[in-house]
Design a protein around this nucleic acid. Structure first.
Lengths: 154, 154
DNA sequence: AACAATTTAGTTGCACACGATTTATCTAAT
DNA sequence: ATTAGATAAATCGTGTGCAACTAAATTGTT
């Protein structure tokens, strides 16, 4: 017997992630306004502040973004002076992305601003680590599903 | 003393929501492929299957989307035969959005497909209701923050 | 009645996000 | 050495998402 009742709860979970992601995005947009950075630009810089240089491919595997998204985003970051891009000498297919001196100098200022804003939250009644773990668990199950047959049939 | 260490965990929480939302989006994209529906189009139909007609404004307040996003989305749904749009007689500013006969007929089929795909997940070790509650709690705190001064200063 | 303020959709512009394709480069097998 | 296959980034097309603005209609106040 097939169940044609809408799985509200599951839809709610997806919708909760969808809504929370948008809210966080908006929150970071405000927090980062002094630096004219969007959230995707910010996490790109976060990754590069940890490891620089990285190829577009490496960056993309950290952030789960492909070159179709990253290339224009990186061009904007470059134009604003945060990063530089140059073809690798060893392998001319690759482009090495590095943080600039300017980005290195601004790093702590950006960190502080984000910290100040996030510290406005109390996470009342939220077990932070457990929440992250459960999100990771859900993501891991979503990854497993994408290999299955049902989801493959167009 | 200001803390200039990056709040990795906080970044991880936002990044977790960001990544999970994208993964769910991809999951629904696959599940809904037979109907040529995107996830935002799907939740729009979900809302309308519950209550139809609704004005663009009402729909937007349910989905947290403004007319800049909804108008083109609704035009696509209309072109594909899922919904119809017509100006209200009582108030010509408003546009009433309704599901079509086609959408009503297809509803159970869509529900079943989504259910079948979601049932592939086990939610192992995930306390579903607690997870939802905690996400709502985080969202509620984000809403509170947006009223505060710090976040306002451009 | 007249008109200022408000409300509703629509429009525009910009920035993702991603599938699909293209171009250039590199690698491997002969 | 040559060339088929693989790989990296860029490009293109479509669909959100949202801020800012516009146009039209309604409401409230006098």
């Amino acid at each position: 017997m097939s169940n044609t009742t809408p799985r509200r709860l599951d839809d709610q979970l997806c919708f909760a992630f969808y809504s929370a992601s948008k809210k966080f995005n908006h929150f970071y947009q405000d927090a980062l306004k002094p630096f004219h950075l969007t959230y995707p630009q910010y996490i790109t810089l976060l990754a590069l502040w940890e490891t620089s240089p990285m190829t577009v491919r490496e960056l993309g595997s950290h952030l789960n973004l492909d070159s179709g998204t990253l290339t224009p985003l990186l061009k904007r970051l470059e134009k604003q002076g945060w990063i530089s891009r140059e073809r690798s000498d060893q392998d001319e297919r690759q482009v090495n992305v590095s943080v600039t001196e300017y980005a290195v100098e601004k790093r702590d200022e950006v960190y502080e601003r984000v910290n100040d804003c996030i510290n406005l939250m109390s996470f009342n009644g939220v077990d932070y680590h457990q929440l992250i773990d459960q999100i990771h668990q859900v993501m891991s199950e979503l990854d497993d599903i994408s290999d299955k047959d049902l989801i493959q049939e167009a």
